[in-house]
Amino acid sequence: MADPVPVAMGQGSSCWGCFQSLVDIHLRLAEVLPAIEIKYWQAVADFKLHHLESYEDKSIVVGFFEGMARTEEDIHLLKLMREKCQILIAFGSCSCFGGIPGLANFSDIEECYDVKFRNNKTVEGGEVPSENLPGIASVVKPNSDFVDIDIYLPGCPPTPDLIYTAVSALLSGQPIDLPPHTVCHYCDREKKDTPIEEVLRPYQGIADPDRCLLEQGYICVGSSTWGLCEGQCVNMGSTCRGCFGPPPPITQDHGAASISMLGSYAPMEPEKIVEEVKDPLGTFWRFDYPTSHLGRMRIKREEAKEK
């Protein structure tokens, strides 16, 4: 067998779900784990930050970075991973686009502190903790604002099959070849190209299991979302919320594409559609607000304040 490939796993502010999805390759772990040499993986191995800091630059072949980087510590780790790794992978949608935690950019950080520490049902008058803790930036910025990313592997989380495909290619030095289709390509439901008369919320009625969810009135952003998930939710009754982000080129604005898609399906009066789509920002930009056009304006506003 070839020598194990040095690998590092870094985690910003995130849920560990992408790494759980890696563990979920199940018995294929018996093939992958012996092929890698873990140089850093805080949840799995006992290497400390000083170990990672002590390695030679670019001495690690592949680095996976899960999560977005909002604390000073996250940003330090992200930059360190860049220095030490030859190939840096943005692992999962938080790392690619900001992800669900990017929704925090809808609010000012002081408002976030209010509900977390100062005034909520079980908490009253707390001060923002600061002792022996890294500071938290005023907004979530995309990881690509801090470092160059070599490979984007989106998904919330990326599926075990996708991870296995990517890891196998990387370990054998091959390019990762991913299909460009949207979620609709993998959806078994029938489309009849009929317009939507009314927007439904997902708890309303009983959906026809064989018809396109969007054509039934349930907002589903599958047609503007990269289908690396292979349609896992839409084929089991749930609408797509876009967790894999836009199809290639992934720099395109996912939310704008989703709204335009809805516009073409719902020839309704603008007032009616505004009334019925309750939360456009949180629906169409759920996983990629920080990398979107609107999200970029929000970040710039914050940067202007800091100057």
Binding site: T71, L103, A104, C112, R241, K278, D279, R286
Partner: peptide
């Protein structure tokens, strides 16, 4: 040493979407 403010950004969402957002608190 990290926090992400779920309590804040659940505000303003249609409530049936909370079960699709809140799981991201923990991947395990």
């Amino acid at each position: 040493n990290s926090t992400r403010f779920f309590e804040k950004f659940l505000e303003g969402r249609p409530m049936e979407e909370a079960p699709r957002i809140a799981p991201r608190i923990c991947g395990i």
